[in-house]
Design a protein around this nucleic acid. Sequence first.
RNA 1: GGAGGAGUGGCCGAGUGGUCGAAGGCAGCGGUUUUGAAAACCGCCGUAGUCGUAAGGCUACCAGAGGUUCGAAUCCUCUCUCCUCCGCCA
Length: 437
Amino acid sequence: MLDARTVAENLDEIRRSLGRRSDAAGQTLDGLTELARRRIELITATEQLQARRNTANQEMTQLAKGADKAAFQVRREELKTLSDEVKRLESQLNELLAEMEQRLLLVPNLPHESVPDGHGSEENPVVRIWGEKPNYDFEPKPHWDLGAALKILDFERAAKISGARFSVLYGQGARLERAICHFMLDLHTCEHGYLEVYPPYMVKASALRGTGQLPKFEEDLFKTQRNDPADTAALYLIPTAEVPLTNLHAEEILEAAQLPLAYTAYTPCFRSEAGSYGKDVRGLIRQHQFDKVELVRFVAPEDAEAQLELLTGHAEVVLQRLGLHYRVVSLCAGDLGNSATKTYDLEVWLPSQQAYREISSCSWFTDYQARRAQIRYRPQPKAKPKFVHTLNGSGLAIGRTWVAIAEQYQNADGTITVPEPLRSFMGTDRIVAREGL
RNA sequence: GGAGGAGUGGCCGAGUGGUCGAAGGCAGCGGUUUUGAAAACCGCCGUAGUCGUAAGGCUACCAGAGGUUCGAAUCCUCUCUCCUCCGCCA
């Protein structure tokens, strides 16, 4: 969320900045200056009346002690009017504040100046490329064919149980999922200094509002229902560990010396992917349920830009250790997520698709999430609290890493070579076809 | 799920209708004293909005939302959270 006052006072500049995302983004500002003006008016009027009422009530304290009961009665009648007027203004003000809040929650973050112009993913510039496209002296297969032949990946039975966009892993397939997770968590906790967290997988609407998924993207979420369908406290399944991790410090004031804070968590993620029909219908790329190791950092604003590079680097190390060829793109203004000011996507090479596919998204949110979730810090002991900057990135999406390993490490005989760092977790250096059902 | 109890500032804790943003203590910060430290003593010590160049003024906030009242931390209603006991349960 942007600061209401800053928006009102820098409207043209902010409108121009949001316009880099899209016309629609710029239009979320319409009417906000008028609301901001009325807000100040109402606050002034309300507080003046409140002050009058407070003074009058001090007189009443004296009158109540005195002998002149008649004077007390008369004054009391007069004050009823004043009191009613105060209440009327207070409720008007509350309504206005609620409306402003609602409107502001829909305004996206401002793209950082270093973010390139552009409308969609085709216009994201490539920042760097790591490794080389592997060469095969055979036709590389898609992971769903490899997985089916090895009997480690099964979409049919998943569909029977849960419908489309779910999967079942067996044997070394399931173990690979676990190995990837274990490897990533060890790397980030032991070498990159992140604190491992086991967070809730179900969260309140307020947490989703804090990170920016709500109110705008409700249709992408799975919402649970208790016995009462009208339950306003219904919980949502997390679409990413970003939500519980970032909200760990909601409504807190941190000390500058504690920053930066770095958390990592493995969690399943649940996304309804509304609007993605027809995209990536085959394979593990786009599922309703997938595993991810997430990285979240809370940092001082002046460090934030450098911290984004650091965080992105931490995610990249995973791909480098696994020997997976990838590239880094910087999202253009039109492709940027709602809450982010700047995002690097890591895109891994999938030989069967002859394409780079997103495997991690590393973003800097400035104080956009911090203001929504009220996450602050004290720059100096005693100083006025300021909003922290939040950052997060996948480190990495586990299902997509599974896909990348299967495809990049596939052999002519249909087996999959296990990347060196995973062998101790897998107990083998090669995934071969499984016996049995 | 049933029955009770409780939610006050960083922490502990007083406050059951009026001058309470809230006693007292602890922790923290600054100072006096001391060779240094401790102790003692003095002062400071919440968040936000708004006006102001500033000093500072005003306003709101005692879990949250409503209500009663001239006036609410205090009374009423609902919600949330935590604790205790019972039931159920991996």
